[in-house]
Computed example of a mutant assay.
Amino acid sequence: MGKDDKEETGFGFKDKAKAEETLRLLEEHDMNYRRLTVRGLLGRAKRVLSMTKAEDKIKNIKEAMEVFENWLADLDKNKEKKPEKKDKEDIKEKKDKGSDKESSPDVEMEEKKEKKELPPDTVPGLGFKDKDTAEGTLKELEGRDPDYQKLAVKGLIGRAKRVLTCTRDETKLSNIKEAISIFEKFLDDFDSMHLSKQNNPYLSLGIVRTAEKMSGEDVTEHQKAFIAAYSSVNGEYKRLRTVQETEGGKTWDIVRNVKTLMLGMHMQRRSMEGSSEASYCKL
C-alpha cells in the first residue's frame, strides 16, 4: 500500500485515534478484506517502529498497534465461539430427534466407555543418557513381558545410535556409548538364556471373564483385582504396563508375570514329586 493509497483510503497507524478511525472505515468492507488490511497495517507499523527513535512517535504507534491487535484477538475469539455454538445446537438437535435406543442407559454407558482415556502402553522413564540411566532402565523393565523387554531395549539402542550421529560433545558421546554397551550385553544374555521362552501370552478378556464366571467362588480376591484391571483397559494387555496394583505398587503386567512364574515352578515341583513317587512305587 503506497502513500497515495494511504491518503485515498484514510487507513493508518499514526496513533490510537487513527487506528480506531481505520477500523470504522473498514466496516463497509467484507471481513476478509478487513482482516488482511489490519494485518498489513500491523506489519508496516512494526517496520516503522524499528526505524523510529522519537519516543512520542513510538508510543503513538504502539497504541495504534494495540488497537489492531485487540481487534484481531476479538475476531479470533468470535471465530472460536461459533463452532462451539453450532456443536451445542447439533447436540441439542440429536437429543430432540434421538430414538429410545440412543437415550437408553446402555448406550449412555457405552458412550462413556468410548470417551474414557486409556492409560499408555509404554513404560515411562526409560533412557540411554549414561550408564546409570541404562541400568535404571533395565531395572524398570525387570519382570515385564520378555518380548517387550527385548523390543524396548532394541528401540533404545536404535535411538541412541541416531543421537550419536548428531552429537559432538565428547562426554555425551562417551556416556551414550556406555549405555549402548550395557543394552547390547543385555540382549546377548537375553538370547543366550532363551528368555523369549518365558513369554506368557495373554488370554483374551472374553475368555478370562468366562473363566471367572465358571469358577464361581473359587476366584480369589487378587484374581478379581487383576480381572478388574484387565477390564479397565478393555483387554489391551499392553496398557497393564502402566496400571498399578493397589497393594504392592507394582504394575499389573509384572504382578501377573511373577504369579505365572510361581505357578509354573509349583507345577514343575509337583510334577517332579509325582515322578519320584512313581519311581519309588516301582521299587
Rank of each mutant, 00 (worst) to 15 (best):
G98L: 11
K86Y: 04
K16I: 03
D74T: 06
G125N: 12
E63I: 07
K161E: 14
E111D: 15
L283Y: 02
H266S: 12
R256A: 05
A211T: 05
I227K: 07
K185G: 01
K14F: 04
D147H: 06
A64N: 08
E245Q: 15
G2K: 08
T171Y: 06
C166Y: 06
D15H: 10
T52Y: 04
Y202N: 11
S103P: 00
D56I: 13
D4N: 12
R47G: 00
L36Y: 00
N257W: 00
K197C: 02
P119D: 09
K79P: 01
E80Q: 12
H266V: 06
Y33V: 08
E102F: 15
K197H: 08
E184Q: 14
S215K: 04
D130N: 15
G127N: 04
R269A: 12
V48A: 09
D218H: 05
K113P: 00
L164S: 07
S181R: 14
S50G: 05
K112M: 13
D87A: 09
L42K: 08
K116P: 02
D132L: 13
E8A: 15
E69Y: 03
L261H: 10
S103L: 15
K161S: 05
L187D: 06
E111H: 08
K59P: 01
I207Y: 03
D169G: 09
R269K: 10
G274M: 10
D87M: 10
A229T: 10
T165I: 06
K238G: 11
E93W: 11
A45I: 02
G216M: 07
G158A: 11
R44G: 00
S204Y: 01
Q149L: 04
V67T: 05
V258M: 05
S50N: 13
T220P: 03
D121P: 02
P201R: 06
D30H: 03
P124S: 10
K116I: 01
E7V: 05
L141M: 02
A73R: 14
W252T: 10
T220M: 03
H194W: 06
T37S: 12
S279R: 07
I182N: 12
E20D: 04
T133G: 09
T165D: 14
E93I: 12
M193P: 01
K101E: 13
D15N: 15
G274I: 05
R47A: 14
K18D: 13
I58R: 15
F68V: 08
K139S: 13
G40R: 07
